[in-house]
Simulated scan of single mutants.
Amino acid sequence: MKCPYCSDPDSKVVNSRPSDDGASIRRRRECLNCARRFTTYERAQLEPLMVVKRSGPREAFNPDKLLRGLSLATEKRPVEPEALRAFAYGFEDEVGAAEIASEEIGKRAMTFLRPLDDVAYIRFASVYRDFDSLERFIEEIRGLKDREE
């Protein structure tokens, strides 16, 4: 590991310990040239979750994109931003597969929003399901109401 102070390529590990609940390793290093100490972190680099779009192409899953959609749906609603962030950034770990269809992401997001807030659920559903008529929109709202009773 190159020293950040003198750029010498040689250093030794003085101490190692788990960090981030075992997701990474924190290492204290000492430069063999200038004797200054610095910290490095090591974490596993996993293959990204790939999203299969409706039109066919694949792209890497981006939790910021999911969070943006959830945030728009819950704007000015009594939903904690931390809950949205936890869902979006924990999504990749929950999937447990190498690929997922974009439709499945939408379904899981709707399942997540449904118990949190009906208005946010309908907002997200209106974009995700791309309602083509007022009747279809009203039908979804009636379905929500029927599930409450």
Results as ranks from 00 to 15, higher is better:
Ser102Thr: 10
Lys107Trp: 09
Ser102Val: 07
Tyr89Gly: 09
Tyr89Cys: 11
Ala109Asp: 01
Asp93Val: 15
Pro78Thr: 09
Lys65Cys: 11
Glu103Cys: 01
Thr74Asp: 07
Glu75Phe: 14
Glu80Trp: 05
Glu104Thr: 04
Ile100Pro: 00
Val79Pro: 00
Glu104Pro: 03
Val79Ala: 07
Ala73Asn: 06
Phe124Asn: 03
Leu67Tyr: 03
Leu113Trp: 01
Arg77Asp: 12
Arg123Ala: 09
Val95Cys: 01
Ala97Val: 07
Phe124Thr: 00
Ala86Cys: 08
Arg77Met: 12
Arg123Trp: 12
Leu84Tyr: 13
Ala125Asp: 01
Ser71Gln: 15
Phe61Gln: 08
Tyr89Lys: 12
Phe112Pro: 03
Glu104His: 03
Lys107Glu: 14
Val95Ser: 06
Glu75Arg: 15
Asp93Glu: 15
Leu70Ser: 05
Pro78Ile: 09
Glu80Val: 08
Lys76Asn: 03
Asp64Thr: 11
Pro63Val: 00
Phe124Asp: 03
Gly96Asn: 11
Tyr89His: 14
Met110Glu: 12
Arg77Leu: 14
Ala120Val: 06
Asn62Asp: 13
Arg68His: 15
Ser71Met: 13
Ala97Cys: 09
Phe112Leu: 06
Ala109Phe: 02
Gly106Cys: 07
Ala73Tyr: 05
Ala109His: 06
Ile122Thr: 01
Val95Asp: 06
Asp93Tyr: 14
Leu116Ile: 00
Asp64Trp: 13
Lys107His: 12
Ala97Thr: 14
Pro115Phe: 07
Phe91Cys: 04
Leu66Asn: 05
Glu99Cys: 04
Glu94Val: 08
Ala88Pro: 10
Leu116Tyr: 02
Arg68Asp: 13
Asp117Gln: 14
Glu80Met: 09
Ala120Lys: 06
Phe112Ser: 02
Phe61Gly: 09
Phe91Lys: 01
Asp64Asn: 15
Pro63Thr: 05
Glu82Asn: 05
Ile105Met: 06
Val119Phe: 04
Phe124Tyr: 02
Asn62Ser: 13
Ala101Ile: 01
Lys65Thr: 11
Val119Ser: 06
Ala125Gln: 01
Arg68Val: 10
Gly90Asn: 14
Phe61Ala: 10
Thr74Trp: 12
Gly69Asp: 12
Pro81Thr: 12
Pro81Arg: 10
Glu104Leu: 05
Asp118Lys: 14
Gly69Trp: 13
Arg77Val: 10
Ser71Ala: 14
Glu99Met: 04
Glu80Leu: 05
Val119Asn: 02
Glu99Ile: 00
Pro63Phe: 06
Pro78Ser: 11
Glu82Pro: 03
Ala88Asn: 13
Leu72Trp: 14
Asp117Trp: 13
Ile100Gly: 07
Val95Glu: 08
Ala97Asp: 15
Gly69Met: 13
Ser71Gly: 11
Gly106Asn: 01
Gly90Thr: 06
Pro78Glu: 11
Ala120Cys: 09
Glu104Phe: 00
Glu82Met: 11
Arg114Ile: 01
Arg123Met: 09
Glu92Trp: 02
Ala86Leu: 08
Thr111Glu: 15
Ala73Trp: 04
Arg85His: 13
Glu94Met: 15
Leu72Lys: 15
